[in-house]
Design a protein around this nucleic acid. Structure first.
Lengths: 237, 237
DNA sequence: GCATATTTGTCCGTATGTATA
DNA sequence: CTATACATACGGACAAATATG
């Protein structure tokens, strides 16, 4: 069973070249986790992964600690580390924190820098390009960047870091959505609208819009989880 | 120069006995950092600390990663780890995030559990006891617990975790306050008032009160930093 | 339920590169 | 500029806990 993982990760070995080994290992693993190559719940063997990436167990364990604190891995004492497996409650919690931080940033955006506002616009354009080329996962990425940019309006390094962490966890959640297009596409127009309101200084209005849209997205995800747990639906493993 | 640190930490060696070594080491170091035994900016030598606590460098490095992610240590590549040294900008940032999360939790407290509300009351009583016995550092601790309880009204594990992290960083900041009593004491009455409003369901009013009080505290801390940096004041060390 | 194999937790020694006196 | 100290990273070892047959 470790065969597949080993083969999977071996392709990343040549990328390991400079800077801190621990950081690079964490980057590689993070990438494999958020793009689904390492599925939620999968166990990460120290020996197998270490061999696949060509790093020692000590170094690998430090990378595991990093990703555990980012919420992408969970560490069970004397049992190993596993890819985090978010539940419906996690979705609710993630959206609770997002609402608090993103809406607060948007409502206080009168003092935001021009560059921060420009990043919001850039993410909207990126989403449009992804939509035009039918790249639905790219559309999801653009949507992530939109929310990161909204949070960035606060001009707060800690908010940026926290939201980055939340969105990475949310990437894991999105893997339960079987229809990425139908899920992500409707939000492109909403993002455009919110960006417009932002540029016109209608901040409270924009925040209300964003709040409502987060509510809908949350419910959609929770429903998707309920469907998975529900035995009468034909859940594909 | 490592002599003092070694002696300081050696007293904690016997505490190391069960559960995960990494966690225990992190707990010991966290305690020494927030109570000021390890001053901001101090460098933590792997060898010295490892010897003092009787743990290997590998284990110690994992604990360092933990505390770095909590914001209490900063890791400089190829140079080592240092106790975080918050600046005035950090204070502003910390209060920005606190405002967003605590006010949001308070405004939405209509759905808070009875236990969560009770914790707010308990922290107020704890503060009163500390005040009565002249324990000013304990008063600060009670105040921390008050804000943790306010954030806890959201019923969100992630909010709890984030706020815990922010308040630990804030502990570091408080070391610049030379007069803990004058700083912490006025907030006891405010906390009582906010708790009363909370129990009566006057949530928006309570949130406004808390917001104003956070503004004042932030300004007070920023001023304290300005005084330290200002050469015309007789800054001790 | 038990014996065995696997894996984690932790420590040690060491080589190499980097920063600082 | 050299030398020293230290962080980075590796590999091996062993006990303890867990998983497996």
């Amino acid at each position: 069973m470790t065969e597949e993982l080993t083969d999977l990760l071996a392709g990343s070995r040549n990328l390991v070249g400079r800077s801190s080994t621990v950081e690079r290992v964490a980057d590689v693993l993070r990438g494999h986790i958020i793009d689904g190559a390492l599925a939620p719940g999968a166990r990460l063997s120290e020996e197998a992964i270490g061999a696949a990436l060509g790093v020692s167990r000590n170094t690998l364990r430090e990378a595991f600690r990093l990703l555990s604190h980012e919420g992408l891995l969970v560490h069970e004492f004397n049992r190993g580390v596993f890819v985090a497996k978010p539940t419906a409650e996690d979705v609710v919690d993630l959206y609770r924190v997002r609402r608090a931080l993103e809406l607060s940033a948007l409502r206080g955006a009168a003092e935001a820098s021009d560059e921060a506002v420009a990043l919001v616009g850039a993410s909207v354009e990126m989403g449009q390009r992804a939509f035009d080329s039918g790249d639905w996962w790219g559309l999801g990425t653009a949507n992530m960047r939109f929310h990161q940019a909204i949070a960035g309006l606060a001009g707060s390094p800690r908010t940026d870091e926290i939201v980055r962490r939340l969105l990475a966890e949310l990437r894991l959640v999105f893997h339960v959505m079987s229809a990425p297009r139908e899920f992500h596409a409707p939000y492109l127009e909403q993002n455009k609208e919110i960006h417009r309101m932002l540029c016109e200084g209608r901040l409270d209005e924009a925040a209300d819009r964003l709040g409502g849209y987060l509510d809908v997205a949350e419910r959609q995800l929770v429903d998707a989880f309920a469907e998975l747990d529900d035995p009468r639906s034909q859940a594909p493993a």
